[in-house]
């Protein structure tokens, strides 16, 4: 079957099998390997991308289900060479060690800040509670997101999907 969707603002059309999962479509058919693939059981959250502006676990969505919809991956965070404040925050506050969980963490963080520009620590913990990090103990991830929130309060950025 043929599927057409917008990925990071670009329309893509591919011939796929109905059973293809969105995570494999993104990584193997589009070559966007920033989105990671971990547990395969909707638990770890490293495969999180946006579908129609909401974070979803792409190992549990069919590529066909994303047909006609808008997808944004971690590659879509940076715009014209400028890092998203969330990406900057992860650099400033050491929000990653091995980096495996990072794409999913950042996509969830971006969605949280778009909705709630000034989240409490508890709200951040809740937002990333469906995602697992085996390295950082989460504290630096939370600080990274707080850094991004503070940065945006100072310099408002235009957020939302890249499309």
């Amino acid at each position: 079957m043929q599927v057409t969707m917008s990925v990071n603002g670009e329309e893509v059309t591919k011939e796929i099998e109905g059973r293809l999962l969105l995570v494999h479509f993104i990584r193997d058919h589009l070559g966007l390997t920033g989105t990671h693939w971990g547990c395969d059981t909707s638990n770890c959250g490293t495969c999180v991308v946006w579908m129609d502006d909401e974070p979803v676990k792409s190992c549990t969505v069919l590529a066909a289900m994303a047909g006609g919809r808008t997808v944004r991956t971690v590659e879509g965070l940076e715009v014209d060479g400028v890092l998203d404040p969330v990406q900057q925050g992860f650099i400033e506050c050491h929000g990653l060690q091995c980096g495996f969980c990072t794409p999913g963490m950042m996509m969830t963080a971006r969605a949280l800040l778009d909705e709630n520009p000034n989240p409490s620590e508890e709200e951040i913990r809740e937002a990333i509670s469906g995602q697992i990090c085996r390295c950082t103990g989460y504290s630096t991830i939370i600080r990274s997101i707080q850094w991004a929130a503070a940065k945006e309060a100072e310099t408002p950025v235009t957020v939302g999907s890249a499309s």
Binding site: P55, V56, E126, A127, S129, Q131
Partner: peptide, 9 residues
């Protein structure tokens, strides 16, 4: 129920 990302779906 589940987590916020699963609850989106």
């Amino acid at each position: 129920i589940a987590d916020p990302v699963v609850r989106n779906r």
